[in-house]
Design a protein around this nucleic acid. Structure first.
Length: 220
DNA sequence: TACCAGGAGAAAA
DNA sequence: TTTTCTCATGGT
């Protein structure tokens, strides 16, 4: 994918949907919590769980750690995988507390912070990059299922390429630009929710004219 | 009824 | 090392 292609898709998406002003979280810590809870889950269900949780306790690492695990899981029922996510959220909170809180994390270099995040149980590459970009404003491109689907169909990334390779591809094409990474990923998700669905195949997708050769999964 | 939703980790091959 | 399975509720 060339810089021109990356810029062209971005311009199309921005023109179609306008600025998205992501992430839909009020505070730095809420963004971190939301990143874990939204794993393989629609955001509307994350909002339900967050509303239930914050009605009971303040949204802080300490307050969440003080909740019994079963009670925390009960609040997380709307997001699905609630037993798994209760453990993952607790692991995140433990790590934040052990690190000395958010100010200590803010002072870390991006590579070190990413390494720290990936060492937390339940934080994989996408969740780590969500947190880096949207909670810490670091220039890291987030690759998710929508990104793979759209750019695979456009023929701009190989269908079986790994997470890191795709991330580097975007970062090389766009240059380190936190604001653009933020908006670009939000627009990809918006497009994915609206049009670029798993099936039927992208009918009516406004980006079809950009489709290149070589992807069996792209629209016909 | 079947599929999908802003994944990740464990287990199996 | 790579692939498959499991976790699970809620909406369409």
């Amino acid at each position: 994918m060339t810089a021109e292609q990356a810029a062209a898709v971005y311009a199309r998406l921005l023109g179609a949907y306008g600025p998205q002003h992501w992430w839909p979280g009020e505070t730095q810590f809420e963004v971190m919590v939301g990143a874990v809870l939204t794993q393989n889950t629609a955001w509307v269900n994350v909002e339900r769980a967050l509303a239930a949780l914050t009605q009971r306790v303040a949204l802080s690492a300490r307050a969440i750690l003080d909740l019994p695990l079963a009670e925390l899981a009960a609040f997380l029922r709307p997001v699905g995988y609630f037993n798994v996510k209760a453990q993952r959220l607790r692991a995140l909170c433990e790590a934040v507390e052990a690190a000395g809180g958010l100010p200590a994390l803010e002072r870390m270099e991006t590579a070190a912070l990413r390494h720290w995040l990936l060492a937390i149980h339940g934080v994989g590459p996408e969740t780590a990059d969500d947190i880096l970009l949207y909670a810490f404003a670091r220039p890291v491109f987030v690759v998710d299922a929508y990104t793979r689907r759209l750019f695979g169909r456009l023929g701009l990334i190989p269908p079986d390429e790994g997470y890191e390779a795709i991330r580097h591809r975007f970062e090389a094409a766009l240059g380190p630009d936190t604001q653009r990474f933020n908006e670009y990923h939000a627009l990809i998700v918006r497009h994915g929710k609206a049009i670029c669905r798993p099936r039927p195949r992208c009918e009516g997708c406004g980006l079809r004219a950009l489709c290149a050769a070589g992807d069996a999964d792209r629209p016909t």
